[in-house]
Nucleic acid binder design. Sequence first.
DNA 1: ATGACGGTGTGGCACCGA
Length: 260
Amino acid sequence: MKIATWNVNSLAVRLPQVLDWLATHPVDALCLQELKLSDDKFPLKELKEAGYQSAVFGQKTYNGVAILSKTPARGIVKNIQGFSDEQSRVIAATLDTPAGELRVINGYFVNGQAPATEKFAYKMKWLDGLRDWLREELAAHPKLILLGDFNITVDDRDTYDPQGLRETIHHTTEERQHFQALIDLGLSDAFRMFEQPEKSYSWWDYREMAFRRNRGLRIDHILVSEALKPQVRSCVIDKLPRKNERPSDHVPVVLELVSL
DNA sequence: ATGACGGTGTGGCACCGA
């Protein structure tokens, strides 16, 4: 059973690429971020024809998240419970999969612009709210996955220039402490459960031929709960879609779970 | 380096992303 995350940076532009990818990577569930469209513009029909149901929390122009799944999603929650948010950044659902009943929390985390800005402060508050809510979700759902675009590098291995980008956005101590607070709830970074290629990233800037020079960041993550850990077989980044024409700046990350 | 590229909504550009 496979589940993936992909920040598509406009589903309107990327739908053909998503359909292509699903045709070659028929995952059980695909979590999308940065739809950049309202619910009424969501391509429900096209995805249904590809074999996927959609739980959608859209927003015009910015943000927007969705969970595509082969089996119906239940218990859908939009945004962080107990945290008031104008922006559509989280959708959670319970899925019945070959690997069992899974709680899936799909997030488009706040970017944060730069330390000491209002947007950075919002990022920190948002992360606090997520942690508090996640504690409850974990208590209710032992087998839980938190995945999406975290907009945080975990350590030096996740960035092409650890020295030059020290304490800049996505690299600050404060962001990493907030990431650690999520880990401390009892979650594991599935990608680091395995040996991985050096300089593995999930995002590359469109500018300066960043992809060709592999100047990227690993900011798209999949965290798994303690109860799910024994079922994790692999976690890989699929960088191939970054070579598409008109690619997203992010690529999919894929988690494989086995049944017990 | 106030830049670069790309998406959106707008309107002759600005804003945002990371």
